[in-house]
Amino acid sequence: MHDSLGELQKEAVAALEKAASLAALKEVEKNFLGKGGKVTGLLKGLKDLPDEEKKSFGKAVNDLKVALEGLYQSRSQILEREEIDRTLENDWIDLTAPGTQHETGHIHPLSETQEEVERIFQQMGFTIVDGPEVESEFYNFEGLNIPSYHPARDMQDTFFIDKAPHPTEGKMVLRTHTSPAGQVRALMQHGAPLRVICPGRCFRNEATDASHEHTFNQVEGLLIDEGISLAHLKGVMLEFLKRLFKRDLKVRFRPGYFPFVEPGLELDMSCPFCDQKGCRVCKHSGWIEFMGCGMTHPHVLKTAGIDSEKYQGWAFGFGLTRLVMMRYAIDDIRHLQNGDLRFNEQF
């Protein structure tokens, strides 16, 4: 019986090694180790053998079964590997054919940049405030120390609403800057100490061309607390610009004039596009005029009922539209609001 077992082993090993495909191998496995297989048959026949043979023969059959199973496993792995290798060899794809189109929409570049600006200032402890776009002359001008006779009103070509003026608030205007919301209203509503920014839409009555728009976005900023100085303004803006442009920048102050701040300043930033080597954006000067700013005028604090002996601070305003145009190298301001989707879909 043991002899026949040797024959069976030879036969099975030969068959397993001969099998050239996974399917053929599976078939051989079935023939020997499957339910009706030859080895399984011998195991089933064990119960009819006498006890003394049952033990030794049983062990021999079981050893054979284990050996064949091991051989089957290793052959199966080899054949599987061969099959994969064949597939890999035959597989081919046209890498130049286009990917499946997944339709997505697009966020306007002004919104995208505004969100970044808001996030950075929030990280520095600023609250974001909002305000009406249709304003009264009081909030847009008087509250900001720009009385009706002030020549600064020449600088602001204002859109007026065709409506009788209010006895105390004056005519209704489209706000010419974000200052009424970011300074006067914010201070009246929240008092001091306060740190806010107010991004929003502004209007100036001027003809539109590639670099002028009657509708544009600004970001107003205000920080009022005890002991706040121009050094803090420099520090906050430097940090903001570094985070926005993700590089080391410089800022510098120049004297400037805005009725609602005293001292009034202009802030320039070192050109982030050429690192001051000179480029078209900075007109080869290495510096970009970024914003107007200054220490909040006591008149503004007084209008809002803030104690200007105790609290002091600063305000700034920069053009978000201009910033977006610089960042994305947009050469015509009119693209931003004319709804030609070929523009909007680029962002």
Binding site: G125, R195, D225, K234, G235, V236, R252, L265
Partner: peptide
């Protein structure tokens, strides 16, 4: 103005709204 240093204001004790 170039002599003014750049400083960050003290940390806020009250979190922004």
């Amino acid at each position: 103005y170039n002599n003014i240093p750049a400083l960050l204001p003290e940390k806020v004790l009250e979190l922004p709204k």
